[in-house]
C-alpha cells in the first residue's frame, strides 16, 4: 500500500543550502497492517510524516514514496488527502472562526468531489458525527467550537481521531498522538484508532514511547535513528527499546 524506497531528503534552508535529514529510508506498509516508527527526538520521524502528507520546505534528493501505485512526491496535499492519506498532527493547528463540524463537512465533501463521488447529505453526516463524538467522549458543545481553539492537548488529539473517523482515510499516520495524553485519554484515542483498523487500511504510528503501542499492538516496529531505519522487528522490539533506550543507535551510520 505504502512503499518508501531509499528516500533521501533535505530541509530547505536559506541561500539554497540544505540539511540532510532522511538518509535513505526504506519501508513498506501493506494494507491491513500497523507499523510503528520509534526513535529518539530529531531522528527524522516527524519529517517523514510531513513528507508523506505534502508539507512544503523539504527537498527530495533521492528515492521514492509510492501510495497505491501513485508517486506522492508530485501530488498536492489535498490530492493526497483525497487519495486517502490522513495525518494526525503532533501539534494540531488552531483555526479561529471555523466551527469544527463545518470544517470536517467541507473537507469531506471536497475529498468526495475530488474522487468523483456525491457529496454527503447533512442527516447522514450528522449521524456519523454523533457516533464518532460519542466514541471519543466529545460533547456536542465541543463540536460547535472553532477547530482546535482553546482545546487542551488531549482534546486536540481526540479531535484528530474524530476527524479520522469522519473522513475514513485509507491510510493513517499518527504523529506522536500519545504526547500530552493522560492514561484515560490515551486509552480512548487508542480505541478510536483501533475501530479504524481493517484489512483495507494501513497505519504508520510515529512515537517516542512504547505506551501507545500497548493498546495499538503494531504488526511491525521500525527503529529510526539519525535519518535511517536502523532495525525492524515485531512488537517485542518496542518493549526492548523501552528497557534499553536508544543509546545503542547513537552515533549514526547504518
Amino acid at each position: 500500500m505504502l512503499v518508501i524506497d531509499n528516500l533521501q531528503v533535505c530541509v530547505k534552508m536559506e541561500e539554497g543550502k540544505g540539511r540532510h535529514i532522511l538518509k535513505g529510508v526504506s519501508l513498506e506498509v501493506p494494507a491491513g497492517q500497523v507499523h510503528a516508527i520509534m526513535g529518539p527526538n530529531g531522528c527524522g520521524k516527524s519529517t517523514l510524516s510531513y513528507l508523506l502528507s505534502g508539507r512544503e520546505g523539504y527537498e527530495i534528493i533521492g528515492g521514492s514514496m509510492m501510495f497505491e501505485g501513485q508517486d506522492l512526491a508530485g501530488m498536492e496535499p489535498e490530492d493526497r488527502a483525497a487519495a486517502g492519506m490522513f495525518l494526525s498532527f503532533q501539534y494540531p493547528v488552531e483555526i479561529p472562526g471555523v466551527p469544527i463540524l463545518t470544517f470536517v463537512k467541507e473537507a469531506l465533501n471536497a475529498q468526495r468531489r475530488a474522487r468523483g463521488e456525491d457529496e454527503t447529505s447533512t442527516p447522514q453526516f450528522m449521524k456519523l458525527a454523533r457516533e464518532a463524538a460519542a466514541q471519543l467522549d466529545i460533547t456536542h458543545e465541543m463540536l460547535k467550537r472553532p477547530v482546535n481553539v482553546d482545546f487542551s492537548g488531549g482534546e486536540k488529539k481526540r479531535m484528530e481521531i474524530f476527524q479520522a473517523l469522519m473522513l475514513q482515510p485509507k491510510f493513517l499516520i499518527l504523529d506522536e498522538t500519545d504526547s500530552g495524553l493522560d492514561i484515560d485519554a490515551l486509552k480512548m484515542v487508542a480505541e478510536g484508532v483501533n475501530t479504524l483498523r481493517g484489512k483495507e487500511r494501513g497505519m504508520l504510528v510515529i512515537t517516542h514511547y512504547q505506551r501507545l503501542l500497548d493498546y495499538l499492538k503494531p504488526d511491525v516496529v521500525h527503529v529510526m535513528a539519525a535519518g535511517c531505519i536502523r532495525e525492524t522487528g515485531g512488537p517485542e522490539l518496542a518493549l526492548k527499546l523501552e528497557e534499553a533506550g536508544y543509546d545503542k543507535y547513537a552515533g549514526g551510520g547504518a
Binding site: R55, E56, P77, A81, F103, L108, A110
Partner: peptide, 8 residues
C-alpha cells in the same frame, strides 16, 4: 497546510 491535509 492543516486544512489542505484534510482535503480542502
Amino acid at each position: 497546510f492543516y486544512m489542505r491535509q484534510r482535503g480542502l
